[in-house]
Design a protein around this nucleic acid. Structure first.
Lengths: 132, 132
DNA sequence: TTATATGCAAACCTTTTGCGGAACA
DNA sequence: TGTTCCGCAAAAGGTTTGCATATAA
């Protein structure tokens, strides 16, 4: 039985992810913390993010043509990715259908822990650039 | 203006993806074809899959902890990924809500081309294994 | 005290890319 | 014949991992 320990690094990493709405990549999390913990290694960031995501304390999101992103907001919501500039943001207004998980579960035989929906398109800025 | 050419490789790659329901990775597509085209390079597979996906002729799907998968079935549908063994399959019975794209578009200012939903959980086999 | 976590660096896996030669149109 | 595409191999991400050391409990 492995006992998890509280370390300075772990605490910093978790609060970095929970304290932002930018859906940072592992490298961005690392950059957010290095002023406070200059020796923090990227490997440690990955190890901790992975553990937090597996435990369900944060979300890990896989995006086409982009490194994985991490989200400390567990409120059910969707994400939008700009296929031009990579901008990545939340979309809350549409109901996330948690019921769906139960329906899929019943019909597929899987036990479903969650689902992730990513919308792909062009952000307003990139749409404008295109016109010029 | 670039004119796209029909090549033996391109044809084989497209029909490999369209002819299976296994959502193959690029490497699997490569393996599916090498008996017919032994010199086919993985780079060529990637180049063609990318182009086909960008054109919208096939779908590219990004999955946590897994290489990207390609799907020749453009019928709107969802996917389920087993977080234990990596099994990846279709789920058709639930309506894919294409209307959602228009709603998100109107409210976010993005122009939305598509959305991808992946359900994560344990497949029946892995659930069983766990009990033993 | 001792098991867990870290830092560092190497390795790994997936994907992209530069280049010279092949082949479609 | 000119331009696009391919094969090859190298390189570029992104992520994981082995090992010796540091540190939480």
């Amino acid at each position: 039985m492995i006992k998890e320990r509280t370390t300075k690094q772990k605490t910093l990493i978790l609060s970095a992810v929970q304290g932002t709405k930018t859906h940072p990549t592992a490298e961005q999390v690392h950059a957010m913390i290095t002023d406070v913990a200059p020796n923090l290694s990227l490997g440690t960031v990955y190890r901790n993010l992975n553990r937090l995501a597996e435990t369900g304390i944060i979300r890990r999101i896989s995006v086409i043509n982009s490194p994985d992103r991490f989200d400390g907001d567990l409120t059910p919501h969707h994400h939008i990715s700009c296929t031009d500039c990579g901008k990545f943001c939340d979309f809350f207004e549409i109901n996330y259908d948690a019921e769906l998980d139960r329906v899929i579960e019943a019909r597929s035989g899987f036990s479903i822990a969650k689902h992730e929906t990513v919308f792909y398109g062009k952000c307003p800025e990139c749409k404008n650039k295109e016109l010029n």
